[in-house]
Design a protein around this nucleic acid. Structure first.
Length: 192
DNA sequence: AGGAAGATCTACT
DNA sequence: GTAGATCTTCCTA
């Protein structure tokens, strides 16, 4: 399977978030490979989005959101690392948060990383999946379109599923439009 | 120095 | 399913 191209990420974050559903998130640690299907995402914009890390302009910790599309952008919230992919049209700002995946490969290792046995609560939240995949801010700026990277997002065969949307979870000041997307009926989505 | 932040876990009704 | 404690950075004063 090939990684998605840079062009895929050079669009409105809303479209990228929606289109990332069903794609494969791959994490390589040395020779071992962990894989999961992306089942839930959220889009974040720039200066006009009060929930965005880029809301108050370019700072050192958020500069990745202003730069190359298709790179990881990882930051800490409440003691959890959250994984984003930088995505925006040219000369714009934005990113997509990966909120949940469905474990496919290397499940024993994910269980070991998280010390839970229930598979449905293994990766059904943004902080849970980074822990299961051993992702921290050391992996900030990784190019997910490069097939040599430790984190990649892979293209998949066409799959028919229904997409539902809602307002973003946990944000204090949300925008009037719905920016959270998930695969309808998938058990690995973080409900609420 | 203090507080906020896109969350998670535990312990209950 | 909801409530409260706790998690670790980075920002602001």
């Amino acid at each position: 399977m090939e990684p998605l191209s840079i062009e895929f990420y050079e669009r409105d974050p809303l479209e990228v978030a929606r289109d990332l559903l069903g794609k494969i998130l791959m994490r390589r640690i040395g020779n071992t490979v962990l894989k999961g299907k992306i089942v839930e995402t959220e889009a974040y914009y720039g200066e006009n989005d009060p929930a965005s890390r880029a809301y108050k302009g370019k700072k050192k910790f958020n500069e990745l959101m202003f730069k190359n599309c298709g790179r990881t952008f990882i930051y800490m919230v409440h003691g959890n690392w959250l994984l984003n992919i930088v995505a925006h049209p040219r000369n714009s700002v934005g990113a997509v948060l990966i909120r949940a995946i469905e474990p496919l490969e290397g499940i024993e290792i994910m269980i070991k990383n998280r010390s839970v046995k229930d598979i449905y609560s293994l990766t059904n939240g943004p902080g849970k999946l980074t822990k299961a995949l051993a992702i921290t801010n050391k992996l900030n700026g990784v190019d997910v379109t490069d097939n040599g990277s430790e984190i990649q997002i892979l293209q998949t065969k066409f799959e028919d599923f229904k997409i539902e949307s809602s307002h973003r979870i946990g944000v204090k000041k949300d925008l009037p439009i719905k920016l959270r997307f998930y695969i309808a009926g998938n058990r690995f989505v973080s409900r609420r």
